[in-house]
Amino acid sequence: MTESLKPAAIYTHGHHESVLRSHSWRTAVNSAAYLLPYLKPNMRILDIGCGPGTITIDFARLVPEGHVVGLEYAPDVLPQARATAAEQGVTNIEFQTGDICNLVDIKDGTFDVVHCHQVLQHISDPVKALSEMRRVAKAGGIVAARESDVFTWFPDLEGMQEWHELYHEVARKNGGQPQAGRRLVSWAREAGFNRSQITATASTWCYSSPEERTWWTGMWADRTVRSSFASSAIGHKLATQEKLERIAQVWRTWSEQDDAWFTLLHGEIVCRV
């Protein structure tokens, strides 16, 4: 592996089926609504950390006269992204591998929009990443990012807070910053943007109906014991398999509460280059 492609951090979740189940649910509407008013039909967009490509494909539909590149560090997920685009007849799109902190194959000022969603929280140098995003954006273009921050829920069953603390511990041990949303403006300023160039907003995901709770908690129960989160927790000696199994059961029990409600607050930035 060359120096430029060494990972800046370990992706805490990995790409287990339980993780891709969540990523494939994401759309431009539920995950990038703050950016949509800025898009124009002829734009060139770079979507970094594209995963299975659902947001990326939506962007391509919104710029029919333009072109979209989905960039992903983990190549194994890209065949799924390419297949989904082909199945949906979206052709103004391509998927490539690359590192957000080292966009070495992209010239300065190439894209109208450079976007990432829940990527900066997983890397050790988000300022460098935003600097690279700024470099490859055109003058007058946009750098946009959305990162999760606060998780809150009701009822607070015994074990839910334990999961939350463990998630933060694992993410930080892996080199990330799980409370990234609140830091986006600060990181963008360090990356060279003036405060006047930055528009900051926030939005949420919320899971409350029986169907939403079943999907969300089933995904997290599986992720807790089967994904890279589990192997990281055990590898860092922060949890045993038995502890993870117990936490997974807490998720299942929580989902059965009729008054259960879970929300994630996200910070968002749109930076003018």
Rank of each mutant, 00 (worst) to 15 (best):
N30P: 10
E158H: 13
A221F: 02
S196E: 15
P79T: 07
F154A: 14
H117Q: 09
S203H: 05
R82V: 06
G141F: 07
T12S: 13
Q197W: 05
W261F: 15
I198L: 15
G181P: 14
S232C: 14
A230D: 12
Y207M: 08
T253R: 15
P79Y: 07
M1K: 14
Q177L: 06
L46F: 01
I106K: 11
D149P: 10
G192D: 12
A180I: 08
P178D: 07
V90H: 03
V113R: 08
T224K: 10
Q179H: 12
P178T: 04
P155W: 09
W251G: 11
W261R: 07
S4L: 13
K237F: 08
R61A: 03
P210T: 01
V150P: 00
P178E: 08
G53A: 01
W220K: 03
G66A: 03
L20A: 09
Q197F: 04
V136L: 06
E212C: 00
A139C: 04
N42E: 05
T263L: 07
L184N: 11
R61Q: 12
T2Y: 02
V113F: 06
Q177D: 10
S209N: 00
T253A: 15
A230C: 14
A81S: 09
P37C: 10
P41L: 01
R146Y: 05
G218V: 02
A144R: 03
R21T: 12
C271G: 01
A129P: 00
T84P: 00
Q88H: 09
G70L: 07
G192V: 02
H115Y: 15
R21M: 11
T56P: 03
L130V: 06
Y73P: 08
K107A: 13
E87R: 15
I269N: 00
R226P: 00
I142D: 05
E65S: 12
